[in-house]
Nucleic acid binder design. Structure first.
Lengths: 184, 184
DNA sequence: AAAATATGTCAACATGGCTGACATAAAATG
DNA sequence: CATTTTATGTCAGCCATGTTGACATATTTT
């Protein structure tokens, strides 16, 4: 109630009040389209695993942790925090749940015994793969439909979108062979 | 405390227990890299306006609303809900704040007086542009650095990532000239 | 021995999703 | 014209996941 409709009849009589009327003069342009496409693509891309996660009573935070632990077995908590850019308290919550329910396990670091190296359990690996499958299929189909060369351009643009300071590390992370036996 | 470190010394003695050890045998491949790049790029891309939003005590939800109202002046609540894919209760919260603080105003629909058409106020338009600027700069720089032709490939891949059913509408939305004076 | 580091934890709080139920005004329909 | 459908708003509460601040412990480094 009480929506206070501004213009009952004389809308055109007060054009200066509504800046949005002048938006048509603004250059929306290909840049805005690219930004909106990123929004829509990401919106649908992350929606893929949600149904599966719900069956486990997990959320997207759990997904992210499972993914990066799977990609970098033996990753430390500090490294994971640096990737996810969240606080350790936020991470601790989902990590505790994942450990309690047997999807991730910890191992004391051998060089540095303060570290807790994280690994997927067999169940964790299975879940990770089930979560990854639809996203991989979606990306594969998108890259294929965009023709040859699209993948290189895609990678180049995405990498350039990353903060310049973080680019070397992101490159290192995405190209890393997931072997790591606890050297860090 | 009580972290229960699994392997005090004989890590290599029980390899079958840790599925993650075998991940090195898994094909991570370019698809996984593309997926992770999307994560990292989006992570940094959405971080741009956060600082500015914080000064207004707004969050990303406000940003999304401001953006799409700016892009489609006179958009209805139902259309906005369809874009954002959230519930009307969630939208109502941020929308109420944006209206109370004078960034968005409503107007009763002329054809259909049940509708509340949404517009940016002058302050809303200014905020929208200040929020958009860093993201546009980031995308422009990324596209430029990826060379000519990258933009077409980029757009093709992103559009193909969108749910097939939604693609026509997304295309319509992103190419829309933001004129609309209330015909819907 | 002291300081720094890696991690964990407790408590409290904020944002922004969600469901369910219900209200109102306007439009569409029989 | 009476009824139903539609577009929207709103109240109440819940949940997931982010935040800050303070502090504890074990371990490594200096």
């Amino acid at each position: 109630m009480t929506v206070t409709a501004k213009t009952s009849g004389k809308a055109a009589a007060r054009p200066a009040e509504r800046a949005a009327r002048d938006v048509s003069a603004r250059e929306s342009g290909p840049l805005t389209e690219a930004i909106e496409l990123l929004f829509f693509a990401y919106r649908d891309f992350i929606s893929d695993p949600d149904e599966l996660l719900a069956k486990y009573d997990f959320g997207r935070a759990h997904h992210r942790v499972i993914h990066f632990v799977g990609r970098h077995p033996g990753i430390t908590v500090a490294e994971l925090l640096n990737i996810l850019r969240i606080t350790k308290q936020s991470l601790a919550r989902v990590l505790r749940q994942l450990i309690e329910r047997g999807f991730i396990e910890q191992e004391t670091g051998k060089q540095d015994r303060r570290q807790r190296l994280l690994f997927l359990t067999p169940s964790g690996l299975e879940l990770e793969q089930r979560l990854a499958a639809p996203q991989q299929a979606r990306v594969a189909a998108a890259l294929a439909s965009a023709g040859p060369g699209a993948e290189a351009a895609w990678r180049a643009v995405l990498l350039a979108l990353v903060n310049e300071d973080d680019r070397p590390e992101v490159e290192r992370l995405i190209t890393a062979r997931p072997v790591r036996t606890g050297q860090n």
